[in-house]
Design a protein around this nucleic acid. Structure first.
Lengths: 337, 337
DNA sequence: CTGAAAGCGCTTACAG
DNA sequence: CTGAAAGCGCTTACAG
């Protein structure tokens, strides 16, 4: 039946000392005799005293809360979840807890989450930016609250970023398909207006151009958001004239949508497929799916480390880290089967 | 270059009012003339004032922080991630942010996370308990900090729980296999000492007994933790005498390990397979995998709602919610192929 | 309608 | 080695 939570004063009273002494003992500060410390410890244990970090941090010099916020598209996406875990682990090494939030790529949701976390005085924010304008965060940045963007560049603010080399990854994938004789390739993507999608399309185009192939044989289909649309688009391509012999799916969800479409026509072994982003069990598919792999754990780790670096030294120049991707060849691109 | 963060006092000075008036305006409390409110709003906007929820909550009656903690095995597990998202959504409706942490099933990690979140004064904890003793949380419970266990029963404390009917799910799966003529079935599980694993084994046994089949033809193999062990175990079974005609994998990781083993022998269409827990792309496998599905989103949702209910009324009796599972028939159990 | 005082649980800066 | 005072940014409880 809910008694009051014991405070340092309660512990002090029970131990018969001033409450500043309790503060010293609880925080392991020097300058307390062993006997006194012992008595304080016992009193604290008897009362089940728990330090209130929040109250402490209020007065504290730096005003840290030892918490940070992570905003991703959705914590339930595999990519985001892997990043989430890496952020947690990196944060833990700095004794800080992490608030997580999902934006669903909605700028308004993103803004609400960001405001909520900031009003809870997180020490910083790791953010997978939506397509919305983020300039409302500028005052926070000016106040030295570090914000690090991951996976995509943010709009409206100039902050540290950590992301994959999307163009190069796409280039590698398409170059590989070209090398293996494919001369009609379809590139499937979601919204071409998103930076990452645009970069992947650009990479695909550049590989195609480098090979001296006619532009019209690289079919770019974008705006694919639902699985239904994806399946329909692929079926349309397969059933149309001069169907592609290979598909480059610029995103996870599209890769699996393409698989479903290929399975529908029984063409999963005939038409080559490379996806962007690795995913769990991709190697258990039949055929196993080849992908351009990113390293979301590394992304999250580096972003978090950057955040702490900037927390330690706010004058650091803005830095943009770009991580290499790796082409993971399995069987769906026909080259190992 | 980091100026000081503006406070209500700063806004008050600029608006030429007392700072209590700022408090009223910022919190939308009544009893402020429109003119004054307008001036305060303008001053707040000019200074980019942001309310400090943490400072406010310190003095506030209930002492809420409008934050809660979620501890799962790992935020990167699909099951946990889906739950995470549901908890976030439920929490958001109560204007509360959620701290997340991964225990890796390690009681010590779990304890550190729990202590950290509690010292940050989260309003409550949604916890997927490890196998460790949790009685150190008793003082928090006595202080009316609600703790809700999900997915598994907690050890050492008596709190609200929300979990799936593991025994019934396993019973359904094995009964289905029996109905379809299987007379030699292998049950693969991780640690038989874990409550959920034990319940699933019990369920499988009960279905087997109900069918009046000889106990020795239901082979229970437990202690399977690494994918390597799982694959080896399945291969051993397949290559041994009187190999099972069907496998019941009592856990996600085991299901995919079994798939790998079956693929190795090219028996994925010959040996039936049912797994516990649905997973992404299970329907894209060849053959598509049949599973006993739980609803992790519902689990997370109900647990969070229960937490808020108890926050509103700490005298609520402890409640144990059990959710039905559903047998999702695809092709790996041979009944639709 | 408005504001000055006290207090939340702690830390900082001082004094003994 | 120890403690009383002031203050963190706010809300509560009062007074005008």
């Amino acid at each position: 039946m809910a008694r009051k939570r014991p405070t340092m004063k309660d512990v002090a009273a029970r131990a018969g000392v001033g409450f500043k002494t309790v503060s010293r003992v609880v925080n392991g500060e020097p300058g307390v005799s062993e006997q006194t410390a012992e008595r304080v410890h016992r009193a604290a244990a008897e009362l089940n005293y728990r330090r209130d970090m929040i109250a402490g941090n209020l007065r504290r010099a730096e005003g840290r809360t030892d918490s940070l916020g992570l905003l991703v598209a959705s914590v339930r996406n595999e990519f985001d979840a892997v990043m989430n875990r890496a952020v947690e682990d990196a944060a833990q090494r700095h004794r800080t807890s992490v608030f997580t939030g999902s934006t669903d790529e909605d700028p308004e949701r993103e803004r609400q989450h960001a405001r909520g976390l900031l009003s809870r005085r997180v020490d910083g924010l790791v953010l997978m930016p939506s397509h919305g304008d983020l300039s409302y965060l500028q005052p926070e940045i000016d106040l030295d609250t570090p914000i690090v963007a991951v996976d995509r560049p943010p709009h409206g603010i100039e902050v540290d970023t950590v992301m994959a080399d999307n163009a190069q990854g796409a280039r590698d994938a398409v170059a590989h398909l070209v090398d293996h004789g494919h001369r009609r390739v379809a590139v499937l993507t979601h919204l071409g207006t998103l930076t990452t999608a645009a970069q992947r399309i650009a990479g695909a185009r550049s590989a195609w151009a480098d090979a001296g192939l006619p532009e019209c044989d690289l079919r770019i289909v974008d705006g694919l958001t639902s699985e239904q649309e994806i399946v329909r688009a692929v079926l349309g391509l397969l059933d149309g004239e001069a169907p592609p012999t290979a598909v480059f799916a610029a995103r996870n969800q599209i890769t699996t949508g393409a698989v479903r479409a290929l399975q529908t026509r029984g063409l999963q072994r005939e038409v080559a497929l490379v996806g962007f982003d690795d995913f769990e069990h991709a190697d258990l598919f039949d055929p196993a799916i080849s992908v351009v792999g990113q390293d979301p754990a590394r992304l999250g780790h580096l972003a978090t480390e950057r955040l702490f670096a900037r927390l330690a030294d706010p004058s650091l120049p803005v830095e943009h880290q770009v991580l290499e991707t790796s082409l993971i060849l399995r069987r769906s691109c026909g080259c190992e089967g």
